[in-house]
Computed example of a mutant assay.
Amino acid sequence: MASSVLTKPQMYGLLAKYLWFHIVGEVVLFWQVAALYKFTGAEPRKKAYTDFYRNYNSMKDFEDMRKTGTFQNAK
């Protein structure tokens, strides 16, 4: 029976090694999620608001709401 020498387990700095690995991984994941949100959520919303208010006429909208009876005190 051949005996093999087992390597010693790392005891000193083990927590720091694992924390460093997970912190770097979480930072990378954070930036990926932030970029995904920016390009799939925030930018299309900004474009939609810009497109809506480009030709928005508040007086025409007010008159349409007044004619439909939305306002009770505006004649």
Rank of each mutant, 00 (worst) to 15 (best):
residue 23 I to F: 14
residue 26 E to Q: 15
residue 24 V to A: 09
residue 31 W to I: 07
residue 7 T to W: 03
residue 47 K to S: 09
residue 47 K to T: 06
residue 59 M to L: 13
residue 37 Y to L: 08
residue 66 R to G: 02
residue 44 P to F: 01
residue 66 R to V: 08
residue 9 P to A: 12
residue 75 K to D: 02
residue 32 Q to G: 15
residue 57 N to L: 02
residue 37 Y to E: 09
residue 43 E to H: 02
residue 27 V to N: 02
residue 44 P to R: 00
residue 48 A to G: 00
residue 17 K to L: 06
residue 53 Y to T: 01
residue 68 T to V: 14
residue 24 V to K: 12
residue 43 E to C: 01
residue 6 L to C: 09
residue 1 M to E: 14
residue 6 L to I: 04
residue 8 K to G: 04
residue 41 G to Q: 04
residue 11 M to S: 10
residue 1 M to Q: 05
residue 6 L to F: 10
residue 18 Y to R: 07
residue 10 Q to N: 08
residue 24 V to P: 00
residue 45 R to A: 15
residue 28 V to P: 00
residue 71 F to H: 09
residue 19 L to E: 13
residue 18 Y to K: 09
residue 66 R to F: 06
residue 64 D to P: 00
residue 4 S to P: 00
residue 6 L to R: 07
residue 22 H to S: 11
residue 62 F to W: 12
residue 34 A to S: 09
residue 34 A to Y: 09
residue 29 L to C: 05
residue 72 Q to I: 10
residue 62 F to H: 04
residue 21 F to D: 02
residue 5 V to S: 07
residue 29 L to V: 11
residue 35 A to V: 11
residue 26 E to M: 12
residue 67 K to R: 12
residue 9 P to D: 06
residue 15 L to R: 13
residue 68 T to D: 12
residue 18 Y to L: 07
residue 60 K to A: 14
residue 71 F to M: 02
residue 22 H to A: 14
residue 51 D to F: 00
residue 26 E to R: 12
residue 68 T to I: 09
residue 3 S to W: 03
residue 2 A to D: 09
residue 61 D to K: 03
residue 66 R to D: 01
residue 41 G to W: 02
residue 42 A to M: 05
residue 65 M to D: 14
residue 33 V to L: 13
residue 42 A to P: 01
residue 25 G to I: 09
residue 10 Q to Y: 02
residue 16 A to G: 04
residue 44 P to N: 00
residue 30 F to H: 10
residue 64 D to V: 12
residue 26 E to G: 08
residue 12 Y to L: 13
residue 61 D to L: 04
residue 45 R to P: 00
residue 47 K to N: 03
residue 17 K to G: 05
residue 22 H to F: 15
residue 37 Y to K: 07
residue 74 A to H: 15
residue 71 F to A: 06
residue 7 T to Q: 13
residue 69 G to T: 02
residue 68 T to Q: 12
residue 55 N to E: 10
residue 3 S to M: 11
residue 28 V to Q: 03
residue 19 L to S: 12
residue 62 F to N: 04
residue 58 S to Y: 14
residue 1 M to N: 10
residue 30 F to S: 12
residue 73 N to F: 15
residue 40 T to N: 00
residue 40 T to K: 01
residue 63 E to K: 11
residue 48 A to I: 00
residue 66 R to M: 05
residue 5 V to M: 11
residue 74 A to N: 13
residue 42 A to T: 08
residue 5 V to K: 07
residue 40 T to A: 05
residue 20 W to Y: 13
residue 23 I to K: 07
residue 13 G to S: 06
residue 13 G to F: 03
residue 11 M to P: 00
residue 10 Q to E: 15
residue 28 V to F: 07
residue 18 Y to S: 05
residue 27 V to R: 11
residue 73 N to P: 02
residue 23 I to R: 14
residue 69 G to H: 05
residue 27 V to K: 09
residue 70 T to F: 15
residue 23 I to G: 06
residue 74 A to Y: 14
residue 44 P to H: 00
residue 27 V to S: 10
residue 22 H to V: 15
